[in-house]
Lab assay of single mutants.
Amino acid sequence: MASQGTKRSYEQMETDGERQNATEIRASVGKMIDGIGRFYIQMCTELKLSDYEGRLIQNSLTIERMVLSAFDERRNKYLEEHPSAGKDPKKTGGPIYKRVDRKWMRELVLYDKEEIRRIWRQANNGDDATAGLTHMMIWHSNLNDTTYQRTRALVRTGMDPRMCSLMQGSTLPRRSGAAGAAVKGVGTMVMELIRMIKRGINDRNFWRGENGRKTRSAYERMCNILKGKFQTAAQRAMMDQVRESRNPGNAEIEDLIFLARSALILRGSVAHKSCLPACVYGPAVASGYDFEKEGYSLVGIDPFKLLQNSQVYSLIRPNENPAHKSQLVWMACNSAAFEDLRVLSFIRGTKVSPRGKLSTRGVQIASNENMDAMESSTLELRSRYWAIRTRSGGNTNQQRASAGQISVQPAFSVQRNLPFDKPTIMAAFTGNTEGRTSDMRAEIIRMMEGAKPEEMSFQGRGVFELSDERAANPIVPSFDMSNEGSYFFGDNAEEYDN
């Protein structure tokens, strides 16, 4: 993207840094990872977990959730003011799984939030270390993106479920800051804005008074975040219109849905970061690795190297396929839920299948599930090659597409044709070009129609051997075009429920 120079890199967003050079960025990201790792080690000690239990991804998720809940100030305040039966607002906890007599047992633990905050700050040299908290939120978000298709949420806001490739980060909490905003897809931002506008339509006082002023500035800020994701002048001009509207209503909703559809071809720039579970960072720190000293990046080879040398386990339900569970977590670790499966298959070195073909449910185990038949197995999170994460949407291309997802959002900077089903997408653009945004709409449609099938995206960008740390010898991959490109292809993934 041309304006790259004016933006802070995501590592800076990730670490609240002012302008830093590459070495400083690597050190501050490393410091953040160190903090998460030290916190995780301490929690495993508190909970008396064995090494194996500490490497269980379900335990990692519970521990991450506990610290996120302990620092969720708004919710904590709300819980104190609106006490609900049987919930102690000062405590947080969740299921911890232990191996007892050759069987997995679930144990519900409860801790004072104050105590968890103390352990977290102690692991982070006394700081609140917001960057580390956001990092864990993005890992949870990436896992949700890989596990669930947001059909219901899309339909509720009037969008087409086939636009799911635009929904990265749709389950990120509001408090995820600049680093969170960077990884949100165009569809996620559109959905947040539509929800806001709908509230304004239904509630006369939404934009009024002292609160209304705050609401208005939040609305304009979200519009600017979305505008910054678009790469064409016409899309940005249309966002200006939406932002400046005196009284946002149905016309703005129409414009936003139009823009979301246009992003299936004229893709937005959305950041991709490899955020790993805390149970990967903990053992690495415990083994003596100093992330701050060595430096770390979320968008280069580092996460690949770390996963190459990590042992992570997962509980497996009786009829689940461990290899499929591994694929789910591998995609989440690489922030690749909406990437082209052919690119992923090449990088991973084994075939990556669409969601609907995987015999696996989510990673988390519900409290009512029976533990008797639970097994555990090693997650295979290694890769054959590594590639640089991208934040450009890439230019655009036609490809055989599917009944489910009709476009992709690249996660890796790797040369390819970008699949999208042009006739299906263009069919949504018939007729409606009147109104105050008509010239911009016409211009956007013209650009979409001009998108050429034979153009290559990320020209000359390749993948790298894991021994090639400096990215000196790019390998331009070859793809098996007979395979499906979309992950949520004609899909039956479970729906995400809060």
Results as ranks from 00 to 15, higher is better:
L264F: 15
R342S: 13
A70I: 08
S467F: 11
L61W: 02
N483C: 01
G200K: 07
G282V: 09
I444K: 07
V155T: 13
R243F: 11
A403D: 05
E64W: 08
M32E: 02
T157G: 02
R243G: 04
K77F: 01
T45C: 14
E252L: 05
R436S: 05
G17M: 15
D439W: 00
Q405I: 00
A2C: 01
M136N: 03
I316E: 05
Y296E: 02
V109C: 15
Q4R: 06
G35I: 08
F488E: 02
P95F: 02
Q58T: 05
D51I: 12
L110V: 10
D101L: 13
E114L: 02
N76H: 00
Q122H: 14
F258M: 11
R118Y: 11
F479G: 09
P322D: 12
E11K: 09
H272W: 02
E454K: 13
Y313A: 13
N492H: 07
S486A: 02
S176Y: 05
L79P: 08
E24F: 01
I116F: 06
D160S: 01
G394E: 11
T188C: 06
R174H: 04
V29S: 12
I201L: 15
M137S: 07
G249T: 05
K90S: 12
A233R: 01
T171E: 11
I365S: 08
K48W: 04
E107S: 10
P283M: 09
D128A: 14
K7W: 05
A178S: 11
Y111N: 06
N498R: 15
Y97L: 06
S335T: 10
L358N: 09
G94P: 07
S3K: 00
I138T: 05
F412S: 02
F464A: 08
C44F: 04
S486V: 00
S359Y: 04
G450F: 10
D290H: 11
C275M: 08
R8M: 04
Y111G: 02
Q308K: 00
M1Y: 10
C44M: 06
R55M: 08
E465F: 01
G249M: 07
Q235Y: 01
D255G: 02
S478F: 14
H272M: 04
Q168E: 04
G169Y: 04
L79W: 04
K7F: 01
A85T: 14
V414H: 00
G93T: 10
R65W: 07
S353M: 14
V67C: 10
G404D: 10
I119E: 06
Y385N: 11
R243V: 08
P277F: 05
Y487S: 01
L298F: 12
I444R: 07
I138C: 05
V414G: 02
S310W: 02
L56V: 12
S310C: 15
P283D: 09
S314A: 14
E455A: 13
K357G: 07
R55N: 04
L68I: 15
F338A: 12
F291G: 14
P303C: 14
M456I: 01
N368T: 14
R26P: 01
A153I: 06
V29M: 11
I138G: 07
Y97W: 05
D468T: 15
I96D: 09
Y10G: 01
F458R: 00
R195Y: 08
K7I: 01
P423C: 08
D160G: 06
L166W: 03
F488W: 03
G295T: 10
P277G: 11
M239F: 00
M222K: 07
P322T: 13
F429V: 00
P173Y: 06
R121Q: 04
A323D: 01
M238I: 13
R162P: 10
R436V: 04
A27V: 15
E465C: 00
K351M: 05
I197C: 11
S176A: 15
D16A: 09
S402F: 01
S377M: 15
N498D: 00
M447L: 13
K184D: 00
Q4W: 12
V155P: 02
M222N: 15
P283H: 12
T437A: 15
R216V: 04
R246C: 12
M32K: 04
H140L: 06
V476I: 00
Q12R: 15
E434Q: 14
N321W: 10
A442R: 01
T424M: 11
R361Y: 06
L193Y: 00
G94M: 12
S367L: 02
E210Y: 01
W386M: 04
I475P: 01
T424Y: 03
K214V: 10
G295E: 12
A471R: 01
Q58G: 08
A411P: 01
S482V: 00
M191Y: 06
N370K: 10
E114T: 07
P318D: 05
R204T: 06
D101A: 12
D302P: 15
R243P: 02
L298Y: 01
E24L: 06
K48V: 10
A27N: 10
T15P: 00
G200D: 05
T130Q: 08
S413N: 10
L133F: 05
D421V: 14
Y97V: 11
K325G: 00
N417I: 13
S69D: 06
P303V: 12
L341S: 11
S3N: 14
P354R: 13
P453C: 06
I33V: 13
A401N: 15
I265A: 13
E18W: 09
W120Q: 09
I138R: 01
Q42E: 11
I119A: 04
Q149P: 04
L358Y: 07
G187W: 07
A387T: 11
S69K: 02
R317G: 00
W104L: 07
Q20P: 15
G362Y: 04
R75I: 01
A373Y: 04
H140V: 09
E107H: 14
E443R: 07
A233Q: 07
S345G: 14
E64V: 04
G349Q: 12
Y496A: 13
E454S: 09
A373R: 14
N76D: 01
A179V: 09
Q327G: 03
G54T: 14
T430V: 05
K113V: 03
L307D: 05
A284D: 01
I201Y: 01
E64R: 11
E53C: 09
A2R: 00
T130H: 14
G158M: 14
Q12I: 08
C333L: 04
K48A: 14
D439F: 00
Y219R: 04
S335R: 03
N250H: 12
R317W: 09
A178Q: 10
V463C: 14
G177Y: 03
Q168L: 04
Q42F: 04
K48N: 11
V280R: 07
Q122T: 07
F338I: 10
A70Q: 05
G17Y: 00
S407D: 06
G200R: 02
L306D: 05
T151S: 13
E320N: 06
G431A: 11
R152F: 09
A123Q: 06
V408Y: 08
E114S: 03
N432L: 15
L61N: 12
L298W: 08
K77I: 14
R389H: 00
G362L: 03
Q42G: 12
R382F: 05
M448A: 06
S457I: 01
I347R: 08
R446L: 07
N498M: 13
W104V: 14
E18N: 10
A263V: 12
V343M: 11
K31H: 04
L344Q: 10
R19P: 02
I425T: 15
A411M: 02
K293Q: 11
G86T: 10
E495L: 07
N309V: 02
S170Y: 01
E14C: 12
V343G: 05
L133W: 02
Y281H: 07
M239G: 08
G94I: 12
V155I: 13
L108C: 07
S69C: 13
N142H: 11
R26L: 07
M163S: 07
S28D: 00
F488K: 02
W139D: 05
E369Q: 06
F71N: 11
R75K: 15
P248F: 01
N370V: 11
L466P: 10
R117Y: 11
A85R: 13
K214S: 06
N395Y: 07
V285W: 03
R236F: 03
V476Q: 02
T350R: 04
V329P: 06
M189I: 12
N498P: 00
M196Y: 02
Q12M: 05
I347V: 09
T23Y: 08
M440T: 08
P303E: 09
